[in-house]
C-alpha cells in the first residue's frame, strides 16, 4: 500500500520547488539562465515516481523532468544548483534544467530532444532483465513524444524482448502551443493506440484522482516487475504555466483561462489533502508540520544552490571522453 501521506508530502515538495523557481526566475539580475520547463499542476506522477518505484528501479525523463527527478529521490539542492549553473549541480552545470541526473536513486537522466530518452529507458530495461534483479525501468514521456517514431520503435523493442519497462505518459493536452487536435487524429486515444501495438499491458487513469492514479500505476509497475513484460499507462494532467519558463500564458490564443480554471479545480494536490483530512488519516497539525518541513527543505536547497560556487572555466573542456 502506498503511503498517501508520503504522496501528499511528495507532491508538496515538488510544487514548492517549482513555485520557488517560478518566483525567482525573472528577478533581476536573472540567475537561472537556461530553458526551464516547470511541472506545476503535474506533481502527482512525479511524486509517485518514488512511491510506486523502488530506489533500485531505473527512470528516465524528458525536458519536463523536475518532478520525476525529485519524486524519484533526486537531491533537490543539486537540481537547483544545476539550474543556477553551479559546480555542485547534478550535472556540474553542464546540462541545466533539462539534463538532470541522480544515479544514486536510479534516476538515469532527463534529455531535451523529444523522444530521445525513451529508447534509453528501454535499454535500461534490457539491462535490468539481463541482470535478473527484478528491477523496473520507468520512462516518463509526454503526449507529444508519442508522435515520435522513437516511441513506436521503443515500444516494439520492449514488447518483442518482453522487457521490464513501464512507459508513463502524462497527457497534458499540449505540445508547446499545439493542442492535441492539430497533432493527432481526432478519434485517437493514446493508450488504445498503444494497446493495438500488441505486447504491452495498457492502462489509463484520470490524473485528477490521486488515489486511483496511485493504484493504477502501482498495479502496472507490480505486473511489470513480475516479469509480465512492458506496460504503458496514460495519465491525464495539465500544465499550469507556460511551456518553457515561469510565466502564466492563458492570455495567449492557444488555450483559455476557463480551461485552466477547470483543471485547477481538479488539482489532485488539495484533493488528496482534503480526502486525508476528511477521513482522519491526517490531522491539520500534521499538515502544517509537513508544510513547514517542505518550506524549510526547499529554502535550504535554494540557499545551497545560491551559495555554491560556479564551475571553473576549465570544466568546459574536460569529460568529452571517459578515460
Amino acid at each position: 500500500m502506498t503511503d498517501l501521506i508520503e504522496l501528499l508530502r511528495g507532491m508538496k515538495r515538488i510544487r514548492a520547488v517549482e513555485q520557488g523557481i517560478a518566483d525567482r526566475y525573472m528577478v533581476q539580475p536573472q540567475q537561472m539562465r537556461c530553458p526551464t520547463h516547470l511541472s506545476i499542476g503535474q506533481e502527482l506522477v512525479g511524486a509517485l515516481a518514488g512511491l510506486a518505484l523502488k530506489p533500485s528501479d531505473y527512470a528516465v525523463s524528458s525536458h519536463r523532468g523536475h518532478a520525476h527527478y525529485i519524486g524519484k529521490g533526486g537531491d533537490i539542492g543539486r537540481m537547483l544548483a544545476e539550474i543556477y549553473g553551479k559546480v555542485t549541480g547534478c550535472s556540474r552545470g553542464r546540462g541545466g534544467s533539462m539534463h538532470l541526473i541522480d544515479e544514486s536513486v536510479g534516476f538515469m537522466g532527463t534529455t531535451a530532444i523529444v523522444g530521445n530518452s525513451i529508447p534509453v529507458g528501454v535499454g535500461l530495461g534490457l539491462a535490468a532483465k539481463l541482470d535478473g534483479k527484478e528491477q523496473v525501468s520507468a520512462i516518463f514521456l509526454g503526449d507529444g513524444a508519442t508522435e515520435e517514431g522513437s516511441f513506436y520503435e521503443s515500444a516494439t523493442i520492449a514488447a518483442v524482448r518482453k522487457l521490464p519497462v513501464i512507459f508513463i505518459c502524462e497527457n497534458n493536452l499540449y505540445s508547446v502551443y499545439s493542442p492535441l487536435n492539430v497533432r493527432q487524429p481526432k478519434n485517437r486515444v493514446i493508450h488504445e493506440m498503444v494497446a493495438a501495438y500488441g505486447g504491452l499491458d495498457t492502462y489509463f487513469v484520470e490524473g485528477d484522482d490521486p488515489e486511483a492514479t496511485t493504484d493504477e500505476l502501482q498495479k502496472a509497475v507490480d505486473k511489470v516487475r513480475s516479469g509480465a513484460g512492458p506496460a504503458f499507462i496514460e495519465i491525464t494532467t495539465y500544465r499550469w504555466r507556460e511551456h518553457c519558463g515561469p510565466n502564466w500564458d492563458n492570455h495567449l490564443p492557444y488555450r483559455d483561462e476557463d480551461e485552466f480554471e477547470n483543471w485547477k479545480e481538479r488539482d489532485p494536490l488539495p484533493e488528496l489533502e482534503r480526502r486525508l483530512l476528511e477521513r482522519g488519516t491526517i490531522s491539520a497539525e500534521r499538515i502544517a508540520s509537513i508544510n513547514q518541513d517542505v518550506e524549510h527543505e526547499v529554502e535550504a536547497a535554494f540557499k545551497f544552490a545560491n551559495e555554491s560556487p560556479f564551475p571553473d572555466e576549465s570544466e568546459a573542456y574536460i569529460d568529452e571522453y571517459m578515460a
Binding site: 539562465r33 537556461c34 549553473g85 553551479k86 549541480g89 550535472s91 552545470g93 553542464r94 546540462g95 541545466g96 539534463h99 560556479f310 564551475p311 572555466e313 570544466e315 568546459a316 573542456y317 568529452e320
Partner: peptide, 16 residues
C-alpha cells in the same frame, strides 16, 4: 568553437 560539446552554465560559456 572549442572541440567540445557546448556547456550550459553561464560560467562555462563565458569564454567558450
Amino acid at each position: 568553437l572549442p572541440d567540445h560539446s557546448q556547456p550550459t552554465s553561464p560560467a562555462l560559456t563565458k569564454n567558450f
